[in-house]
Amino acid sequence: MQTHKAKRVEITIEAVMERRLTTALVTAGVTGFTVLPVLGGSGRSGQWSREGQVSRAGGMVSVVCIVRADKLDNLLDAAFSVVERHIGVVSVVDCEVLRAERF
């Protein structure tokens, strides 16, 4: 089956920043993304788990976007403007999609 090259960007960020991030992505022309809850993890600040959180302040979400390579810089600029001062991870990997016109 014919596949097309694309970029998969995963941004793990504090839940309180989710709306700001998705707004910035939409403004930058990113039309599709998926928001996933994060159950827990470990990082420079130590281990954490969603179980021990009483508010959204301690939670994290993962925002996944798949875009064409030519849209990547715009997306990263927009994401960086939001995540710069905050806890989080931004990663980019190559991927392939079936329907290129959707991205």
């Binding site: 130590g46 009483v54 508010s55 001062r85």
Partner: peptide
């Protein structure tokens, strides 16, 4: 506070260590 203010602090003051203020208040 351990609900509204921590969320506001994460947005307005991300440099502050959340484990200090959350552990103290809660």
């Amino acid at each position: 506070s351990y609900i509204a203010v921590p969320a506001a602090m994460r947005v307005a003051l991300p440099e502050a260590n959340p484990s200090i203020y959350l552990t103290l208040s809660l």
